[in-house]
Design a protein around this nucleic acid. Structure first.
Length: 273
DNA sequence: AGTGCGACCTGATCGC
DNA sequence: TGCGATCAGGTCGCAC
């Protein structure tokens, strides 16, 4: 599932492929996940030039001219794919963007198998209110800043805290489990049980695992592919996620999987205290 | 206020 | 060329 490293990979590719281009036309094949409506979004972006593509948490932000923004959330199976001119739309394609760049044309498809993701046309004010709901960006913050976010509410578990986008932005199920393993902490521990040293260690491991995953272009444990349809490489470096019953890379104890905070949760019963 | 859980959605996988 | 049940997960909204 796309979390910070996967969304960042896509952001970089979109920024490179879209910056300075004009949205000449938009073809909607399925408008059920377009906000505020298919018509408003289509009319709002057509003819606009893309100034840059940015990211906050797991949200992609196309900065268009006229202080207009196209927000895209991939949720689990949302995809942006650059496709050739002879491309035939697939079953799950929702939108095709036709781009022009001084006579050159290209196209980008938005698709989403599970229809959880969405595209939203936003103005300055809307964008500001959405961004205000997110906690600090983990790769743009100090470990101390992140550690300070992992204090309250004290009965909340590490896992629930890491998954909460208002606590720290961009972490999902995979990297929550991976960060906890690296820090040697059980995901179900309560925040209040952490020493300040443990808190700082967890904050540093969150940063480290996200940084390494960005370098590997994300994790393709499931459906994730980038804008060229290529998989990430970080699944080769996962220590616990998706490794139930397999040996812990540190101590060889079989990895356990349980449900915690409504999510599949993986940990090493020996290494993680 | 904080927590837990269902809903949203489809494809893959499992059990019989 | 079986088929129904279960699981996966990011986020929202609702009940407690």
């Amino acid at each position: 599932m796309p979390e910070l490293p996967e969304v960042e990979t896509i952001r970089a590719q979109l920024d490179k492929g879209l910056r300075g281009k004009k949205i000449a036309a938009v073809q909607v094949l399925y408008g059920g996940r377009l906000r505020p409506s298919t018509v408003a979004l289509t009319q709002g972006v057509t003819g606009r030039t893309i100034e840059s593509v940015e990211r906050r948490a797991k949200l992609l932000i196309w900065r268009l001219d006229h202080k207009c923004f196209l927000l895209a959330h991939l949720k689990m199976t949302g995809r942006f794919i650059f496709v050739p001119a002879e491309y035939h739309p697939g079953k799950h394609d929702h939108v095709i963007f036709y781009l022009s760049d001084h006579g050159n044309t290209s196209r980008l498809v938005w698709s989403d198998v599970r229809k959880f993701g969405y595209l939203e046309l936003a103005d300055d004010k809307k964008l500001t209110s959405v961004l205000a709901t997110y906690g600090p960006e983990p790769l743009l913050s100090s470990p101390e800043t992140l550690a300070n976010r992992l204090v309250r509410p004290k009965t909340r578990s590490l896992k629930a805290a890491l998954l909460n986008q208002a606590t720290i932005a961009g972490i999902g199920n995979i990297y929550a489990d991976e960060a906890c393993h690296r820090a040697g902490l059980r995901p179900m521990r309560r925040l209040a049980s952490l020493s300040s040293g443990e808190r700082l260690r967890l904050a540093r491991e969150v940063q480290q695992v996200l940084k390494e995953a960005v370098k590997q272009h994300g994790t393709s444990a499931d459906d994730y592919v980038d804008t060229r349809g290529e998989r990430g490489d970080f699944q080769r470096f996962l220590r616990v996620y998706g490794r139930k019953g397999q040996p812990c890379p540190v101590c060889r104890t079989p990895i356990k999987k349980t449900v915690h905070a409504q999510r599949g949760t993986h940990y090493c019963p020996k290494c993680q205290k």
